[in-house]
Amino acid sequence: MELKFYIESGIIESFVLGLATEDEVEELQQMRRLYPDLDTEVELVERRLERAAFDEPAMPPMEVRDRVLQKIRWEQGSGQSELNSNYTFINIQPKDGDHITVHRWWRVFFIIFFIMSKIFLFLAIFYYLKYRQSQEQHGLNMPAANVPFNQEQQQNIFFL
């Protein structure tokens, strides 16, 4: 009696339509374990809905079928080529003038080149700053040594 009431509540229809909450789905699964007859009822509802949907089908355009099947064939083709190394992958896409194809080693080369350029840039800045620092220190030391000389020179010039 309780099971009949549960079925009549429309919970199975709610589950089949995808409207049942997680708790309701969990409860339904538990009830199905307790009462295996519920499985028959679920199947009955699904079959009714299937019959209803098949009553008024609307076929999608043929291009949809082609897209779906093309995907299958593509995946199948790539799967087979992975399994069997004797197959050669040939890209039949039309080549445009904007893109070039290069060997994968170029990627390694470009990564190394990029890292090296960063290192050289860092070293260049570092040594430039070092050079500036040494120049400044040199500049600071120079006037102390030059002052007497300059004064002497100025005196000589003055006497001349």
Partner: peptide, 28 residues
């Protein structure tokens, strides 16, 4: 599977998304 169910499912999709291109993408 496609031939059997595409029609029934498509009729449900166009009730939810009544735009041809989107409905086609959903079926794919």
């Amino acid at each position: 599977l496609y031939d059997r169910y595409a029609g029934a499912l498509y009729s449900m999709v166009i009730q939810l998304v009544p735009m041809k291109n989107k409905a086609n993408d959903i079926i794919v």
